[in-house]
Design a protein around this nucleic acid. Structure first.
Lengths: 216, 216
DNA sequence: GCATGATACGAGCTATCACTCAGGTTTAAT
DNA sequence: ATTAAACCTGAGTGATAGCTCGTATCATGC
């Protein structure tokens, strides 16, 4: 359940709690923060309001988080970790095409399942010093994808620099979907989007022969 | 020079100035706002600081802009209009491949030319009620692209729904580049990125035959 | 049972900031 | 020269919000 913690003291939690009581307090704070983020957005999510909804004193908030930003950094980290577990909880695909057809729908479903929250996390909540790359998904999925593509290199068009390619395709998927979340959330319901995205990456990555073979 | 104005009274300018003096005031405000946005970010860009750097009274700011958000909405609008003019100032490409090879580098160069400003506009500055779609680039380039693709339909793979396709490719380009701006600006210098993006869209859009024909 | 650290509390401090307003100055038309 | 409208000013206001700190309660080891 626990996502790995960040090391930057400004954006990570202050103490690691030892009693169950305080763990409940922390969870209440994070849940309240999430609810308020969804309902009011980051700017209007004051620490006092969070404490009130969580049913804890404002002092308790600052007992565990060095500041407002750290609260939302933790919300983001836990959300990111959920995605990581969703992806890694599935059996490893047997082909590159299988990879695209599995992981892209998972991420789409993930953002669709709580559109407002993810829109806020993408756009409202500052990224602080800790970038996307330090989060579990980016940190661990990246290397995993490189290995996967190397292993299935025979399916790919002749493309050198697999690491760069892995990062690029990962980024294109994520950036495109995030862009829909922010600017055209209504279109996310359209299954065409999913198809086009998968289709595009497939045409780019795979050998024409493989594309043919997989068609039926 | 003038970008078309938004109609929402909350995010558009209050008065249209009639004297040259006031036009200079407005420009000074917008330039100061831009400089402060670059140096301090949106949150720390207070209206008082903007007025001070612009060398005008804070009252003058509210003479022309209904609020802080409207100032930055105008900054964004003018920036967006610059991109629109960059794209439309070029001769119309003769092929789809020519389109990709022209417009993607233009947008890349555009964001590279002032990375911090564009990162702030993408991420810091709220999008308000007025979405990306009301800005000149999205509003006018979208339809233009649809017409262009229709005109060059013989170069494309058999793909129905050209409007959706136009919007999709446009979005993929923009989203991917914006993602690099925000999360890996250092990689924007790498010419590989440009190549991969063009190559990917080309493989997706064009007939294999055309791809072959264009190779040498 | 006692002591010590962990946990919880919340009134209030400090600082910031978007914005108003009442009055001054400049411009341009008559 | 007169006047009305356009333009400009900046001290002050009201509201908000992040955070501190002195105090109180609870849990646990001995």
């Amino acid at each position: 359940m626990d996502a790995p913690h960040n090391t930057n003291p400004l954006y990570s939690m202050k103490k690691t709690p030892s009693q169950a009581r305080s763990r409940a307090t922390i969870d209440a704070i994070l849940e309240a923060a999430t609810r308020i983020l969804i309902q009011f957005g980051y700017d209007k999510a004051s620490t006092n309001k969070i404490a009130e909804l969580a049913g804890v004193g404002i002092g308790s908030v600052y007992e565990y988080f060095p500041g407002k930003e750290a609260i939302f950094a933790e919300v983001r980290r836990r959300e990111d970790y959920k995605l990581f577990e969703l992806i890694m909880g599935r059996p490893e695909p047997e082909t590159v095409r299988g990879l695209l057809e599995l992981h892209i729908p998972i991420y789409l479903e993930f953002v669709r399942s709580n559109l407002v929250l993810h829109a806020a996390l993408i756009n409202d909540v500052p990224q602080f010093a800790v970038g996307q790359r330090e989060l579990p998904f980016y940190r661990d999925y990246g290397p995993w994808l490189i290995d996967f593509l190397r292993l299935h290199q025979d399916e790919l068009r002749p493309l050198d620099n697999i690491p760069l390619l892995a990062e690029f395709t990962n980024r294109v998927s994520r950036a495109t979907i995030d862009n829909y979340v922010l600017h055209s959330p209504e279109q996310l319901a359209d299954p065409q989007i999913e198809l086009m995205l998968i289709d595009m990456l497939e045409h780019y990555l795979l050998k024409p022969a493989d594309k043919q073979a997989m068609r039926d």
